[in-house]
């Protein structure tokens, strides 16, 4: 799941927002930086991180902490 966008590196180009297949990322209210708006939508596809020209995005390979249906 997407973990962070480094504000100091993000130049607000919007490429990550265009790349996200779902709806995870948006621009902030001033329209200057990308923000993680709907983290639960993230499907860990890495599209944003792969396309970010400034290396500002870090996607963690773990999808989420999953509930355990079975107790061993």
């Amino acid at each position: 799941m997407i973990a962070s966008i480094d504000e100091t590196k993000c130049d607000g180009c919007g490429i990550c927002i265009e790349a996200c297949p779902i709806d995870t990322l948006r621009m902030d209210e001033k329209g200057e930086k990308a923000v993680i708006k709907y983290p639960d939508d993230c499907m860990t596809c890495y599209a944003c991180e792969l396309k970010c020209p400034t290396g500002a995005i870090y996607v963690h390979p773990f999808k989420e902490v999953l509930p355990r249906a079975i107790t061993y």
Binding site: I22, D41, C42, M43, T44, K63
Partner: peptide, 9 residues
């Protein structure tokens, strides 16, 4: 494929 990522469009 995609549901393998526990998310879906």
């Amino acid at each position: 494929w995609k549901s393998g990522y526990h998310s879906h469009t």
